[in-house]
Amino acid sequence: MNRLLLVGLDEPEVRDLRARLSTQIPIVSCPVLPRILLEAGELLVERPNAHEVYVPVSRVVFHGIFEDDLPLLTALALWGGPCLPLARGMMDARPRIPCLVRALAVTRFGAMRRGYADRASPVSPKAGETLVAKWGEWHCGENKELFSATRRAEVPTLIEPFVRGEATRIHVLGERAWQIRMAGETWLKSIHHAGSVVLPAGEADPALVEDARRIGAAFGLEMFAIDYMVEPDGTKHLLELNHIPNVTVFPELREAYLDFVASWIEAGSARPRS
C-alpha cells in the first residue's frame, strides 16, 4: 500500500497539500507525534482515533518540533525509508549542542568561541563582558538569557559571547534559498516579529547561502534554515541550524513549501524534484 504519513502539519496545510496532489494517495495525518511500529523493515502507524489499529505507510513527511520527538526521529532513521526531511539528518540536528558542534565543523563562520556549563557549574563573565546562555531544545527565543554577572547553570548550558549586529536567516528549500531579516524589540530576534522581512529574490547574501548549503549537505537535509549574526563591520557568525524552520509566517515560503512537498510525494522517491 502506497500510504503517506504526515506528522506535525496543521489542518490548513494538510488541506492545501491534498489539493496540490494530482492523485488521491491515502494519507494518515497526525498533528502530534503518532505511535509507530517497525517490524521487519515495515513502518506501521496507529490510526488516529483507532486504538492499536496499525496500518503500513511507505513515505513520511515530518514538520514539527515536539518535546520528546527524538525517539521517533531515531526510529524513522532506523527504518531508512523515504522521509522528508531526511530522518537521519533530523535526528542528528535535533539536540542543540551536538547539532551546533556538527555545523561548526563545516561552516566558514565558526570563529566565535563557545563555552559549556554543566549542572550547578558557575560561569563568571570578565569585567564588562556580556554572555548568552542557551539551554534546552526549543527555538524562537526560548531558553536564552543574557548575563554579565556570575550565573550558575541549572541544566547543561551552551555559553556564547553576546554579539551585536543584524540577525538573519537563510531558509533553504531544495534548489531555492531566501534570506530573512529578523527583528525584535529586545536583543532577541525572531521571524515572528512584525518587522521581520523576506528579502527580495536575488538579494540573499551569496556567502551565507553557500555556507548554509554546505551545512545542509553535511546533515543530508533538503530543507532547513540557518541563523547567522552579521556584525556592523560585516563579520559573520553561525548561530544555529533549524532542522524544522517555520513555513507559515511568510506566505511565499508557505506556498513554496507545499509545492515542494507535493512534488516530493508525487515523485515517489526519497528525494524531491528541484
Rank of each mutant, 00 (worst) to 15 (best):
L6N: 05
V249I: 12
G81E: 00
R119F: 14
P245E: 00
C83V: 11
V163M: 13
R213G: 04
L221K: 00
A19P: 13
E210S: 09
A133C: 09
L208I: 08
T107K: 06
I97S: 03
E203G: 11
M223Y: 13
S121W: 15
W138P: 11
T186C: 09
D68F: 07
R164K: 14
S58M: 06
C30S: 10
I65H: 09
G220W: 04
A149I: 10
T235A: 14
L4A: 03
E52K: 12
A217E: 13
L253E: 08
A177M: 04
H193P: 07
A120Q: 11
P251I: 02
P12W: 05
C30V: 07
L38Y: 03
V28Q: 06
C83Q: 06
C30L: 06
E42R: 08
A111E: 11
V261C: 04
D118M: 13
W264V: 06
E39C: 05
I25T: 14
W138H: 15
V198N: 04
E129F: 01
R94D: 04
P98I: 13
C140K: 15
H243L: 12
K189E: 04
R114F: 15
V101T: 14
L84S: 04
E142H: 14
W264P: 10
R114K: 13
G220N: 02
G220M: 07
H237S: 03
L33K: 01
H63A: 01
R271Y: 10
V32C: 14
H243E: 13
L38G: 04
R164Y: 15
R96D: 10
L253T: 06
S58L: 03
G216Y: 05
R96C: 08
I244E: 03
I97L: 12
F109W: 08
G220D: 01
M229W: 06
F250L: 03
E175V: 05
T23H: 08
I191E: 14
D10V: 15
S29M: 03
A111N: 10
P12H: 11
E154F: 15
E210R: 10
I191S: 14
V163N: 09
L6R: 02
G165M: 01
N242T: 15
W187E: 12
G220A: 02
T107P: 02
L208P: 00
V123E: 03
G141L: 07
W79A: 04
E240W: 05
V197H: 05
V247T: 09
L76P: 01
A19Y: 00
L131S: 03
L73C: 02
W187F: 01
R47G: 12
